[in-house]
Design a protein around this nucleic acid. Structure first.
Length: 871
RNA sequence: GCCCGCGUGGUGGAAUGGUAGACACAGGGGACUUAAAAUCCCUAGCCGCAAGGCGUGCCGGUUCGAGUCCGGCCGCGGGUACCA
């Protein structure tokens, strides 16, 4: 509903009625005008340059939250600005609509994920529309629309044909009580969130995208992403993790179960002489062979597989090891025997699933060796200073160290030199080979869940795994089971136990077969939606002509929390789509510029519930007194400050109340002011009032503009200030300095309010003010524009351009420092020469007093900036 | 654990290596009003009567000059491959 603003309780005594900016009337009026004029409908007409601005689309959690408002307002500022600088703008919106919360809701409250999701989408659209975003709503879709996920299935089939999809085993979190797969989020301290059972790692056959085919490309192409934040590129580069090292084998002293060797990969072959043990993953084939024969090994492996699958859980778990009793001989000294341990911290997914431990130069190996009494043998020491008293000595690779037990090379060299020398030496000796490896793993896309895009393949007893025919797409999710609503309260995947949905004919031979019951990771859905927005109703994944015109995304905006996964997967998808003929070559990198906005955070209020698990309370339920929080029943809550707003933590702030009370423009102005867009902001409702007052003041300045004669000096001064404001605000918008742009708009408003210029000059200044504000507060801007006789819609007006001649100042104020401390200032012509500035600076009373007769050693004059007198 | 950020008045924050605290919020004072609301004006980092001193998480360094660059800490946040 449109917001409501109360009228003043009594009219002003001064006769002239007070002008009110009434958001409730003004905002719907202009929204209707924009819609009727089709201002934000993206078209390819007019031979104008195109601009595609996109904000990461939301998950339909049920209500929009303040983080959405911040995100979409930023995008809207860019969209409206680009529109007024002569672009065809594409600014679409949709919903990332598959995912676990819908199933969780069905589990907790009954109902169906589909109904829950579409109802949430309706609510959120109705909450977003009053905000007046310049979006092309005609392009909207949800990823759970069969029209969308059907095309996604078509992409999957093309990827499959191209060899970009394959099946292999991978581990999942297994809840042994509920007999179901858990998401990492559903594992709390190594236990299932519902059953409380200790989670185990279990292997399943799953589908994978071959993102590793693109490791090198995804890494090296980061260099070309000039308009991406450096931190995101660094994070992605580290994630891809290109490394050079040595891959070689340790010979088992005695062959065991058909194993004669253990292959390892190391990035530090120069430390080979410091090896103390060989470690293998509990999931290593040798460990499995031993496990099958020896109950003690089986017991250890079972223990080692407990806890979640996350890297964090594995890395921070207590280091556990089991001495297999097997030994290997050292490749450089066959008489040197080392023990083979199974260790819980070795990942089967990385390298070869086996390592050799060098406790002197690796913290983790050190901890392990110390715990199990294994030898710790240094191979190098610092060139200067002492060897650390405890723990491992791990200098950065570019640092020079002195080798005491070298593999090859000079006595003193850098780690990098030593690694190169060791690789060369070992290769010469026939011990393994230097290889390049990547940390990046293939993307497992199978999910054992209902509410996702079905994987369009069929399992045939005769033909094996067969792709579904394209003409049979979409493979749709069933709504019911056997005429009854699906029961989501039963753990596990409803598709898997559905009585009829699985049954089908083999697309190849026609024999009775069964559908794949796994669905796709929701990251798949969000990896190509940006491309679909260019032709959302096409009968193929995209329409090439549309993609040629609209791609790439000129400006992508979203949360820093997506720095790695979503953005990396999208970059992969763009490449894969290009190679399967679904995107032009230029779109292999789909996002030309990226801006990562900070998150809106809010404290979490929690109390302890059953079994020690936390219960989260909404901000509305908590009363704050002296820094402590209390529930209505008097219980104190624990306050976790500044956490990401998350539906599961109940710390999401709803902006609807602010919109209702003050209107959309106030909410938009408010989320942009004060905080730099890239920084996290702790939400506080104080300040919305101030934003509202300011907008009302701007409106009054225009509405109550009194007749005044022209005044040459004052009019000229105001004109110069106007052009400075144009310059500063435009620069602020283009550089995402929205808070700085708003500060300038405050200052410019104050300037106009205080100016003694004539009414004609003031009206011109106010019209420019309206234009400069129009991307942020578009409704108010239209109203003022009309009030002051502006032609047409401000949304259609050309952006004002600053006249450089009006921006230059004739005189500047120079601060005078003595030894770096400010002692005075002088006002001088802008281009006064250095010698003269120096002379004037030394005559300043306070400077003379500070010098106290001392002769300056040096005087530094930075023209137009500062003078520093050094004594 | 590992990777990436962030840390400035009572508060949000500003500041191409060049006057730290722009612009705002809350506060204090004043004008208008019978009174209030609304509005307008003034004030304001801390210590100090002042001169001046101290100040950008902590310690050190580079520089004529450091919030900004470098090294080492501390605290907080994000990511960590099945939350999205």
């Amino acid at each position: 509903m449109p917001p409501y603003q109360p009228a003043p309780r009594s009219p002003s005594r001064k006769g002239a009625s007070m002008s009110r900016y009434t958001a409730a009337e003004i905002e719907p009026k202009w929204q209707k005008a924009w819609e009727e004029a089709g201002v934000f409908t993206a078209t390819r007409e007019g031979g104008k340059p195109k601009y595609y601005v996109l904000e990461m689309f939301p998950y339909p959690s049920g209500r929009i939250h303040i983080g959405h408002v911040r995100n979409y307002t930023m995008g809207d500022v860019i969209a409206r600005y680009k529109l007024s600088t002569g672009h065809n703008v594409l600014h679409p919106m949709g919903f990332d609509a598959f995912g676990m919360p819908a199933e969780n809701a069905a589990m907790a409250n009954g109902g169906h994920p589909k109904d829950w999701t579409y109802s949430n989408i309706d609510t959120m659209v109705s909450q977003m529309k009053p905000l007046g975003f310049g979006l092309d709503w005609s392009r909207m879709f949800a990823t759970c629309d069969p029209e969308y996920y059907g095309q996604q299935q078509a992409l999957f089939l093309d990827f499959l044909e191209k060899g970009l999809v394959y099946r292999k085993n991978a581990v999942v979190n297994w809840d042994p009580v509920d007999m179901t797969v858990l998401a990492n989020e559903q594992v709390e301290n190594g236990r299932g969130w519902r059953s409380g059972a200790v989670v185990e790692r279990k292997e399943l056959t799953q589908w994978f995208f071959k993102i590793s085919d693109f490791s090198d490309d995804l890494l090296s192409a980061l260099d070309g992403l000039d308009n991406w934040p450096a931190k995101v590129k660094t994070m992605q580069a580290n994630w891809i993790g290109k490394s050079r090292g040595l891959q070689f084998s340790w010979d088992l002293t005695e062959a065991h179960e058909g194993f004669e060797q253990i292959e390892v990969y190391t990035t530090r072959p120069d430390t080979l002489m410091g090896a103390s043990f060989v470690g293998i993953s509990p999931d290593h084939p040798l460990a499995k062979a031993l496990e099958a024969k020896d109950p003690k090994v089986a017991e250890f492996c079972l223990e080692a597989r407990k806890g979640g699958t996350t890297e964090e859980a594995i890395e921070t778990a207590e280091k556990l090891g089991y001495d297999t009793g097997l030994t290997v001989s050292h490749p450089l000294d066959p008489d040197w025997k080392l023990p083979v341990w199974i260790a819980n911290f070795i990942l089967m997914d990385y390298g070869t699933g086996a390592i050799f431990g060098v406790p002197a130069h690796d913290e983790r190996d050190n901890e392990f060796a110390t715990k199990y009494g294994l030898p710790i043998t240094p191979v190098f020491e610092p060139v200067e200073g002492d060897y650390p008293a405890k723990g491992a000595f791990v200098p950065p690779k570019p640092d020079r160290v002195r080798f005491t037990r070298p593999v090859a090379g000079a006595e003193v060299m850098t780690g990098n030199e030593a690694i190169d020398a060791a690789v060369e030496f070992c290769e010469g000796k026939g011990i393994g080979e230097g290889v390049t490896k990547f940390r990046l793993r293939d993307w497992g896309l199978s999910r054992q869940r209902y509410w996702g895009c079905p994987i369009p393949v069929v399992h045939c007893p005769e033909c094996g795994v067969v792709p579904e025919k394209k003409e049979n797409l979409p493979v749709q999710l069933p709504y019911d089971e056997g005429g009854k609503p699906i029961d989501f309260s039963v753990p596990g995947n409803p598709l898997d136990r559905h009585p009829t949905w699985r049954d089908c004919a083999c697309p190849a031979c026609g024999a009775p077969a069964q559908r794949e019951t796994d669905t796709m990771d929701t990251f798949v859905d969000s990896s190509w939606y940006f491309a679909r927005f260019t032709s959302p109703r096409a009968e193929t994944p995209i329409d090439m002509a549309e993609a040629e015109y609209w791609m790439n995304v000129d400006q992508y905006i979203g949360g820093i929390e997506h720095a790695i996964l979503h953005l990396l997967y999208s970059r992969f998808f763009a490449r894969a789509m290009n190679e399967t003929g679904h995107l032009p070559q230029k779109s292999r990198e789909p996002f030309d510029a990226l801006f990562t906005q900070g998150m809106v955070t809010h404290a979490i209020y929690q109390t302890e519930g059953k079994g020690g698990r936390p219960v989260y309370h909404y901000p509305e339920e908590v009363e704050l007194r002296e820094g402590k929080g209390f529930l209505k029943d008097g219980r104190e809550v624990e306050i976790v400050p500044s956490a990401k707003m998350s539906k599961s933590k109940n710390n999401v702030v709803d902006p609807v109340a602010i919109i209702d009370q003050y209107g959309a423009d106030t909410a938009r102005w408010f989320v942009l002011s004060d905080s730099p867009p890239e920084r996290d902001v702790e939400w506080t409702a104080a300040g919305a009032e101030a934003a509202s007052k300011h907008l009302a003041r701007v409106y009054r300045l225009a509405a109550e503009l009194a007749d005044a004669p022209a005044n040459e000096a004052e009019d000229g001064a105001l004109l110069r200030e106007t052009h400075k404001a144009i310059h500063d605000v435009t620069g602020g918008i283009e550089s995402f300095g929205f808070n700085a742009a708003i500060a300038k708009l405050y200052a410019f408003t104050n300037t106009i309010a205080k100016s003694k210029a004539g009414s004609a000059a003031k009206a011109e200044a106010l019209k420019v003010l309206a234009q400069l504000m129009s991307p942020m507060t578009p409704h108010l801007a239209e109203e003022i524009w009309t009030l002051l006789g502006g032609e047409g819609l401000i949304a259609h007006a050309d952006w004002p351009v600053a006249d450089p001649a009006l921006l230059v100042e004739d005189t500047v104020t120079l601060p005078i420092q003595v030894n770096g401390k400010r002692r005075g200032e002088i006002s001088v012509p802008k281009d006064m020469d250095k010698a003269e500035v120096e002379k004037l600076a030394l005559e300043v009373e306070n400077v003379k007093r500070t010098l106290d007769g001392a002769q300056p050693k040096k005087v530094i004059v930075v023209p137009g900036r500062i003078v520093n007198v050094v004594i």
